[in-house]
């Protein structure tokens, strides 16, 4: 979450609660709702690493709050993150291992494994469909769609396994 917060701070300085709101607003249902405590812990670590700088602001009737600014080092770290290519997800190696090894043990045959896995994926897909129905913002829908496409690829790969191995 470190770099996500840095990115938000690059836009404008903010305090912890504002950051939580900004995350929720931008990603909507697509983003697992962040815990405020987790945000403060992350900010503290970032401050320690010199990536952000905290400034106390006095408030009447309330305790002081900390507004965080992005430092030059922080901006540099952010730039590096944005510029470096992102690794994509790869084949779930766990199912792959099961598929290759299980028949050897005699516990299950491959066809059964694949079929069960397919139904599981379809179950997941159904959930994604439901999430998609509930997503309002474009970015959120894009996230779900990305997940769906990955899932579709997984299913297609299952089909290939079935054709080749069974």
């Amino acid at each position: 979450m470190r770099l996500h917060l840095l990115a938000l701070l690059a836009k404008e300085p903010a305090h912890g609660y504002e950051l939580k709101q900004a995350l929720e607003q931008t990603f909507g249902a697509a983003y697992p709702s962040p815990n405020i405590g987790q945000i403060y812990v992350t900010l503290a670590r970032l401050e320690k690493d010199g990536l952000v700088r905290a400034v106390d602001v006095e408030q009447s009737n309330r305790p002081n709050k900390k507004v965080y600014y992005l430092t030059a080092t922080g901006r540099e770290a952010l730039t590096t993150w944005v510029e470096e290519p992102t690794e994509g997800p790869r084949v779930r190696d766990e199912f792959y291992m099961k598929l290759v090894l299980a028949p050897l043990t005699g516990i299950a045959d491959r066809m059964a494994l694949i079929s069960r896995q397919r139904r599981h994926y379809l179950g997941l897909m159904r959930e994604l469909n439901e999430v998609m129905e509930r997503s309002e913002s474009t970015v959120a829908r894009l996230l779900v769609e990305g997940a769906m496409l990955h899932l579709q690829a997984d299913l297609d790969w299952l089909e290939r396994c079935q054709e080749e191995l069974c």
Binding site: A29, Y31, P32, M111, R119, H120, R126, L128, V131
Partner: peptide, 27 residues
């Protein structure tokens, strides 16, 4: 599921109740 003109799997798709995207998508 069909393969070579035969049914190789016939079953229901599991269904569970989910609250939000976080349960489905690991970001």
């Amino acid at each position: 599921s069909l393969l070579d003109g035969e049914i190789v799997d016939d079953g229901r798709i599991p269904r569970r109740k989910i609250a939000g995207a976080g349960e489905v998508i690991d970001l």
